[in-house]
Design a protein around this nucleic acid. Structure first.
Length: 475
RNA sequence: UGGGGAAUCGUCUAGUGGUAGGACGGCUGACUCUGGAUCAGCAAGCCCAGGUUCGAAUCCUGGUUCCCCAGCCA
């Protein structure tokens, strides 16, 4: 929460801080004849509850005396009874059309250690009972929750009114659903437990820790929330909006750097062997205050395989036999030959010539080249592990899957691709969490968990918008 | 066929009796040493049917559709 930018100051509250007071309130309700101890089993209670359409029946223990209830409740607390053997229920109305009002449980017996209260208690309050009490004790004015609690509000109100205590107002709003992912804790837990992700902070998880490790900034998340708004319509936000927010933020603040993900070796035939030049590169064209850096250039380079086509389709502006392109911040080069693997026919190396007069990227004659591609000097590049993350699911609403909650069929098998990238040496020593734009590829951050100085690990936060991909799709 | 909610561009969201607006996404085009960014523009919506009113997304009536509820979970 702090990382997101919030500060609760001295107001870190826990429901368990109020267990004693809640117990006293329960006693108060028992004395008032508004709560009773029931001995029905879970199954029996279910039977007595009725259905959505039919009213329930009253428990045979519903009319025990206050004295008996008090005695039983004290003994529940004292640990005399087994888990599940008894429960304290509110005495409301077994025929209520709102099932939450059919004598809901307030306390159940649970001989379990509490992470804060230790072993002090063996009875624990139910959510509906605890919720309003916490709010009331803390003196809050409005209690915001999600839509599914709308028909719990009458119960929230009932407890507070029967107790005659300060009564905050519960207001329900839609939860924030997102396309191509699930957000329910249960489903997320399933992803973790069944090993579909590496943990709660896996960069594909829509958790705060996951988003953080993925490279999302707190500002982008808050901005996203502001844009989404708050309303009561049960809605699902297009994940593209989240992606837009992080791109917008990182475009302004992420330093640019060059990295080649799928290397194709390029030899500049007319460039002297053994020579190295430092090219001046702008750190962020969106913010010149971020300065410049030097990028080493030499005779043997790597470029992206995708940036070369032997037989280029129309509108392909990158390298091809006989074509000239700009190596960003370096030289204009022309492809003069391709070396192929004899067996597979795969292009394994390119031979190019550079125009020495175009140093820095601009030819003195002012001729235009349509394409500018990124590159890295083979001898200077740093090898790093790069994680290419993509959406976890292939369908827009994986949460809709009703069956046995089996995600198998809708999980994106390519949500993580790991490869070795070759990065310009300037990123060496970057701190975990550092964010960069790998030019023409996307935004990446140094993994905060697995990266080390000798083997850096980068996570792709989000790709850059790729209009070429759209054009190519239509070809 | 019980109860509780919600319906406005593809997706979110404003508008609460007076010109239906914004964002994302989509599509054009301009510009560009990132096919990024930026800029300009276009398409796209009031769940339906009646009614009230000079005038209805908004008020009334009746429908329709969708979501939630039968945990000793939250």
């Amino acid at each position: 929460m702090r990382w997101l930018g919030f500060d609760w100051e001295d107001r870190l509250f826990y429901a368990s801080d109020y267990f004693d007071q809640m117990y006293d309130y329960a006693v108060q309700l028992i004395k008032a004849g508004k709560a009773y101890v029931d001995d029905l089993s879970t199954d029996e209670m279910r039977g007595y509850r009725g259905t959505l359409i039919d009213p329930g029946k009253e428990s045979p223990h519903r009319n025990r005396s206050a004295e008996e209830n008090l005695d039983l409740f004290e003994r529940m607390r004292a640990g005399e009874f087994k888990d599940g053997s008894r429960v304290l229920r509110a005495k409301i109305d077994m025929a209520s059309p709102n099932l939450n009002l059919r004598d809901p449980a307030m306390y159940r017996i649970l001989h379990a250690e509490h992470h804060r209260a230790g072993n002090k208690w063996c009875i624990y309050p139910m959510y509906d009972w605890a919720h309003g009490l916490e709010d009331s004790i803390e003196g809050i004015t409005h209690s915001i929750c999600t839509l599914e609690f709308e028909d719990h509000r009458p119960l929230y109100d009932w407890f507070l009114d029967e107790l005659g205590v300060y009564h905050p107002q519960q207001i329900e709003f839609a939860r924030l659903n997102l396309t191509y992912t699930v957000l329910s804790k249960r489903k997320l837990l399933q992803l973790v437990e069944q090993g579909y992700v590496s943990g709660w902070d896996d960069p594909r998880m829509p958790t705060i820790s996951g988003l953080r490790r993925r490279g999302y900034t707190p500002e982008s998340i808050r901005n996203f929330c502001e844009r989404v708004g708050v309303a009561k319509t049960d809605s699902t936000i297009d994940v593209a909006l989240l992606e837009h927010c992080i791109r917008q933020d990182l475009n302004k603040r992420a330093p640019r750097v060059m990295c080649v993900l799928r290397p194709l070796r390029v030899v500049i035939d007319n460039y002297p062997e053994g020579q190295t030049e430092d090219m001046d590169a702008v750190n962020n064209p969106e913010d010149t205050d971020m300065g410049t850096r030097k990028v080493p250039f030499s005779r043997v380079l790597y470029i992206e395989r995708d940036d070369f086509r032997e037989d280029p389709p129309g509108k392909f502006f990158r390298l091809a036999p006989g074509r000239e392109v700009r190596l960003r911040y370096a030289y204009l080069i022309t492809c003069v030959g391709a070396v192929k693997d004899e067996r597979t026919g795969e292009v394994v190396e390119l031979h190019c010539t550079c125009d020495p007069a175009s140093r820095g990227g601009n030819p003195p004659d002012g001729r235009k080249v349509k394409g500018t591609i990124h590159w890295v000097s083979a001898a200077h590049a740093l090898a790093a592990e790069v994680h290419l993350y993509d959406r976890l699911f292939t369908v827009e609403n994986p949460g809709d899957i009703t069956s046995s909650a089996d995600f198998e069929g809708v999980l994106n098998p390519n949500s993580l691709e790991t490869l070795t990238g070759y990065i310009e040496p300037s990123v060496s020593g970057a701190a975990p969490g550092s964010r960069y734009q790998f030019e023409r590829l996307g935004y990446f951050c140094v993994d905060s968990k697995d990266s080390s100085p000798d083997r850096m690990v980068f996570n792709r936060t989000i790709s850059l918008r790729d209009s070429w991909a759209k054009i190519e799709k239509q070809l």
